[in-house]
Amino acid sequence: MPSPTIRPATDRDGAAIAAIYNHYIASTVVTFEELAVDATEMAARIAKVQAAHLPWLVAEEDGEVVGYAYAAPWHVRAAYRHSVEVSVYLDHQATGRGLGSLLYEALFPILKSKKIHVAIGGLTLPNPASEALHQKFGMQKVAHYHEVGRKFGQWLDVGYWQTKISEAE
């Protein structure tokens, strides 16, 4: 199998990204969204991230999108402008092959070049694979919120991991 290509997402990737994400909405608790999103909504989300001058990347194999990662503003207040929340999702049939690492290996240098100071990752807990991925990139657990979400009839915890990317000014 050829190496995956990592490239910036375009609005044409909306359907493929929505298909990946909708699996997690319908079948898991890793996202707290409960309703599927369509290609138009996903394209709008991509455009919003890119309008904030932040990266949204896709991993592509044999012309098919098999994963994505992006950085979104942490909060809207101006003082947070040097902090982002990072996310990565993989096609559920493409997990365990290092694609999440490849996406973050591409994403983090872009954030550094944009003088992003801190990257934050929010994870539904427990989630050993995602915890390991974030720790691999130097992220440390900084918060644990108990039973803050409810999906599929269960209360869910959320943890936050954080790392310094650069010395933003």
Rank of each mutant, 00 (worst) to 15 (best):
Val142Asp: 06
Gln50Ile: 07
Ser27Gln: 14
Glu169Arg: 14
Asp11Val: 05
Leu107Ala: 04
His117Glu: 06
Glu85Ala: 11
Gly149Leu: 11
Val142Asn: 05
Met42Lys: 05
Phe32Gln: 04
Val76Met: 13
Thr95Ser: 10
Val84Asp: 00
Gly153Met: 12
Val29Lys: 05
Trp74Leu: 09
Tyr145Ala: 15
Thr31Tyr: 06
Gly138His: 13
Ala71Tyr: 00
Tyr68Arg: 01
Ser3Pro: 06
Ser87Leu: 04
Asp38His: 10
Gly159Phe: 03
Glu33Met: 14
Leu54Pro: 01
Ile17Trp: 00
Trp155Tyr: 13
Met139Asn: 03
Gly14Ala: 08
His53Arg: 15
Leu107Met: 11
Ile17Asp: 01
Leu57Ala: 02
Thr10Leu: 07
Asp91Gln: 12
Gly121Ser: 14
Val37Gly: 07
Lys115Ser: 15
Asp11Lys: 06
Ala36Glu: 11
Tyr160Phe: 15
Thr28Phe: 10
Glu33Tyr: 11
Phe108Arg: 02
Val29Glu: 08
Ser166His: 03
Glu33Ile: 10
Ala59Asp: 00
Glu34Asn: 14
Tyr68Pro: 01
Phe152Pro: 05
Phe152Glu: 10
Ile116Glu: 00
Ala94Gln: 09
Arg150Ile: 14
Leu54Ser: 02
Val88Gly: 00
Gln162Val: 13
Ala69Trp: 00
Arg7Gly: 11
Tyr24Ile: 09
Ala26Phe: 06
Pro8Trp: 06
Arg150Asp: 08
Leu111Trp: 01
His144Thr: 08
Asn127Phe: 04
Ala44Met: 09
Arg81Ser: 10
Ile6Ala: 07
Val29Phe: 07
Ile25Val: 15
Ala79Asn: 15
Ala69Met: 07
Thr5Tyr: 08
Ala39Trp: 02
Val29Gln: 06
His53Trp: 10
His23Pro: 04
Asp62Ser: 14
Ala26Ile: 09
Gly67Leu: 04
Gln140Trp: 05
Gly14Cys: 08
Leu99Ser: 02
Asp38Glu: 10
His75Ala: 14
Val76Leu: 13
Phe152Ala: 13
Asn22Leu: 09
Gly14Lys: 02
Pro128Asn: 13
Thr40Cys: 12
Val148Asp: 10
Val37Ile: 15
His144Ser: 08
Gly122Ser: 13
Ala106Gln: 10
Leu35Pro: 02
Pro128Phe: 10
Ile17Gly: 00
Ile46Ser: 00
